[in-house]
């Protein structure tokens, strides 16, 4: 049997368990039937975890394929930096409460996420082509620039400082207001549509991984495809950032994990990444909610888990290469 199909037999019940575990754990006590009021707090949070994990993982997988670079991920492209700056700017301008929080903040993070992407795109464009190396390089530069801008905002911030820092650390705990629920539906739509689009491009991404020129000669409109993939990824990242802040390493590590199971074929890799990413983030958040009476930002947990795992992957790769 194909390895990825075999994996799905384990993943399906595992995902169910993850969701149940996510719903059952929290500071109000372990249990599913605790109190439907408690459940109405946990349910959107688990949903947000699933969505954010899925969105980050699928955009990571798609970017790795589209740019032919194993280090590609949403954060490397500078989109996250731009989106985070937009969100922080919205907070500094006092757009966190009321209508501003529901509309202003996500729009700011989308606008600056797209701006970052546009700058990366126009910086890295060579003629009509979009070489992978220049995309990564300009992503790093744009990210560095937005990091500096974020530092500036942190220095200027007064009472918004705490909110900004939690946004930059990545946190699923912001979602408990009625307006954020509305925002959750919008972001859900964005993430599901974009992921579906990326999945539909699985075969084209496979072609792309043959190299740009072979893909072109097989009739693929390479640059057009790349632009669309970048755009879909940016949309998802901006959606995630505006609800959950900056969550690192999911987009980088999960596609590698999925590739170990499914092999490089993108139509198999993408759904596996989506499900693994969703599972990972929900589990990490369940941990973040229960290990201490305070909220531990989930971005801290994913980075703490992600870095050692990435080192493990690297060492494994080195051993097989030898």
């Amino acid at each position: 049997m194909r390895r990825d199909i075999k994996a799905w037999y384990y993943l399906a019940p595992l995902s169910l368990l993850t969701i149940l575990l996510g719903l059952a754990s929290g500071p109000a006590g372990f249990g599913l039937l605790a109190d439907h009021q408690v459940m109405s707090i946990r349910l959107p949070r688990v949903l947000l975890g699933l969505l954010a994990g899925a969105g980050l993982a699928s955009s990571g997988a798609a970017l790795q394929a589209a740019l032919g670079n194993p280090l590609a991920e949403p954060y490397l492209l500078g989109v996250s930096g731009g989106a985070a700056f937009g969100a922080a700017l919205a907070l500094l301008l006092g757009l966190s409460a009321g209508l501003g929080g529901a509309v202003g903040l996500p729009l700011f993070s989308l606008a600056f996420g797209l701006l970052a992407l546009y700058v990366v795109y126009s910086l890295s464009k060579v003629g009509s082509r979009l070489p992978a190396e220049t995309v990564i390089l300009s992503g790093i530069i744009v990210n560095a620039f937005f990091s500096a801008l974020i530092m500036l905002l942190l220095a200027l911030a007064g009472r918004q400082l705490q909110e900004m820092i939690y946004l930059l650390m990545g946190n699923l705990g912001m979602i408990f207001g009625a307006q954020s629920l509305y925002l959750l539906w919008v972001c859900a739509a964005v993430i599901i549509l974009c992921t579906a689009y990326l999945w539909s491009q699985g075969r084209n991404l496979d072609l792309l991984s043959l190299g740009e020129q072979p893909a072109q000669s097989l009739g693929l409109k390479v640059e057009k495809l790349k632009v669309r993939i970048l755009l879909a990824s940016a949309l998802m990242v901006a959606a995630v950032v505006s609800l959950a802040g900056v969550i690192g390493f999911v987009g980088l590590v999960v596609p590698h994990l999925a590739r170990m199971i499914s092999g490089p074929k993108n139509s198999r890799l993408l759904p596996l990444s989506v499900v693994l990413g969703a599972n990972l983030l929900v589990l990490a958040d369940a941990l973040a909610r229960t290990i201490a009476p305070q909220e531990i930002p989930v971005g801290v947990i994913t980075s703490l888990l992600g870095v050692p795992f990435f080192i493990y992957l690297l060492r494994r790769k080195k051993r097989t290469a030898l």
Binding site: G26, P27, A28, G29, D35, Q37, V38, I41, R42, Y166, N171, G173, F176, R289, A292, P293, Q294, E295
Partner: peptide, 17 residues
């Protein structure tokens, strides 16, 4: 009152509970 530091981010569940 029982959170270990003077001030901390808490889960809204705690309020409901």
């Amino acid at each position: 009152g029982n959170i270990p530091s003077s001030y901390a981010a808490v889960n809204p569940e705690l309020v409901v509970k």
